[in-house]
Amino acid sequence: MIYFCATPIGNLKDIGIRTLEILRSVDLIACEDTRTSLKLLNEYNIKKPLISYHKFNESSKAEELIELSREKDIALITDAGLPGISDPGEVLVKRLINEKIDFRVVPGANAALTGLVLSGLSSEHFLFYGFLKAKSSARKKELEGLKNIKYTLIFYEAPHRLKDSLIDIYEVLGNRSASISREITKLFEETLRGNLKDLLDMDLTLKGEFVIVVEGNSQEEVLDLEELLREKLDLGIKKSQAVKELAKEYKVSKNELYKISLEVDNEQP
């Protein structure tokens, strides 16, 4: 059996009892960085054989772990958080599912959700995006695809890219409410809140991993009913049918659409 175990995102005491029981019971532990994992394992006096499993050998090691799991119990951990969430693990999960091999996921600490609660922004609906692209042009393209989403947006970012990412988020999404959390659960944990322009003007400590939480799009979508009607008519749909379809699709008045259709007719040569 392979167990995907969440580990603390900072404070080593944020580890689950079940995770500790599994780490003590398995035959070996696959980990992202053996040096980082040893700090956790030594803290709880756990001594097990370790296998390196990280993003650079994920594909090649996945098959090896599957073969080993046929006779041994294995725990997969990353440096912090849940394997498969912005960390190695997804490749192995897909292989296990494809080969119809059972596995278990053991939950635990999560930086994205902790950052969301710390932000004070709406947590009713949210989108966890993870890391944005490193290059500004690619990053802005990603953000363009997110700017109309009404849900709270959650990003991870490295300290050396934080300011550039905040600039791009501000330029594409506008001056929305946001928060930046760093070193969550650690000694120097810090959360800054305000609108994006305020945050850019603050003296930011560029150390540790960051969680950026941004308010969703709160602007009402303005429908261009005339353009939508033209698109239907250009497809050869009859005016009465086009009016009926648009009224149902966008929950607007048929009478309003009919008046617009008359204006469109008057413009025809």
Rank of each mutant, 00 (worst) to 15 (best):
S122D: 12
E43W: 02
F128E: 04
R230Y: 07
E189D: 00
D87P: 03
E71Q: 14
V172T: 14
V106Y: 13
G120D: 01
L132Y: 01
K94R: 04
S119E: 10
I97G: 05
A247F: 07
L166C: 07
E67V: 10
K197W: 11
G236A: 15
S179T: 06
Y258T: 11
V264Y: 09
V105G: 11
V106C: 08
F128V: 13
L28Q: 05
E124R: 12
E90W: 00
L187F: 04
F126R: 10
V172S: 12
K140C: 11
E263R: 02
P83Q: 03
R193T: 10
L92I: 03
S253E: 15
G174W: 02
K244Y: 13
I22E: 05
E67N: 11
K254R: 15
F126M: 04
L38F: 06
D164W: 01
K254V: 06
V222L: 12
G16K: 00
I97H: 05
V222S: 14
L146C: 09
L153D: 11
L121A: 02
N266Y: 09
L192F: 08
E221A: 12
I167N: 05
D224R: 03
L173H: 06
E221D: 10
L257T: 10
G81L: 08
E124F: 15
I29E: 08
L121E: 13
Y258Q: 11
Y53N: 07
I15A: 04
R230F: 12
Y258F: 10
A109F: 01
K239A: 11
G89F: 01
D203C: 00
L65R: 04
Y129W: 03
P83H: 08
S86F: 07
T205Q: 06
G89H: 10
T36V: 14
E227F: 10
I2P: 00
K150M: 03
K13T: 11
Q268A: 12
D168Y: 03
L187M: 13
E43I: 02
L50I: 08
K232W: 01
I184D: 14
K13H: 09
V117Y: 12
